[in-house]
């Protein structure tokens, strides 16, 4: 019985690792943040916890396979009140939707070390296609991906109801990321 449990756990672990997960994200050398305007005042926030399964070769971007998963409960907008508010139903509704995911459907080179990734970003159960631009640079033996993309918070029902007023909290959010990948694609 114990053996069977172990065996199925091992199988599940093997199955959970997608075949393309050749590179690993180095959390200590990565960052995921966003900026938006509140009463015209620029405000910054971050997510502390996220995982990624990536196979990205700067020489063959078309072959990229990548999924990212962000633990929305790890949000930090700079204060305990704001952090508590961001997890509530009107915002990320973390109790019902703990994670946001992004899957790269296509990646192409723009030239000059720049790339463009397209694919669905799912937040709060709502899927919207986004276009992220980033650069890829070697950093020692690692690969550093740096870039960002704009999104409209109301397309994901972030800040529903009384918060929908975009004069107070702007609709435009700029997401910025710095991902350090280690290993060969």
């Amino acid at each position: 019985m114990n053996i069977r449990l172990l065996a199925s756990a091992a199988l599940a672990a093997v199955l959970a690792v997608p075949a393309f997960a050749a590179q690993t994200l180095v959390p200590a050398k990565s960052a995921l943040g966003f900026t938006f305007k509140q009463m015209s005042v620029p405000v910054e926030g971050t997510f502390k916890t996220y995982t990624a399964q990536v196979s990205f070769d700067p020489a063959k971007p078309e072959a990229t396979q990548a999924t990212f998963s962000v633990d929305l409960g790890s949000i930090d907008v700079g204060g305990p009140d704001g952090n508590a508010e961001a997890k509530k139903k009107a915002w990320f509704d973390v109790a019902s939707f703990p994670k946001a995911t992004f899957t790269a459907k296509s990646v192409k080179a723009l030239g000059g070390g720049k790339y463009e990734a397209r694919g669905p970003l799912v937040i709060k159960g709502l899927s919207r296609d986004i276009v992220a631009q980033f650069t890829a640079k070697p950093a020692g033996s690692d690969l550093l991906l740096e870039g960002g993309f704009p999104l409209k918070r109301l397309q994901y029902k972030l800040g529903d109801g009384a918060w929908a007023d975009t004069e107070t909290v702007a609709d435009d959010v700029q997401v910025k990321f710095r991902f350090t990948l280690t290993g060969k694609p």
């Binding site: 509140q38 009463m39 005042v41 009140d81 704001g82 508010e85 009384a162 918060w163 007023d165 004069e167 107070t168 909290v169």
Partner: peptide, 10 residues
């Protein structure tokens, strides 16, 4: 904490 609060603080 609310949109009104942000507005009035501003």
């Amino acid at each position: 904490l609310s949109a009104l609060k942000f507005k009035l603080y501003a």
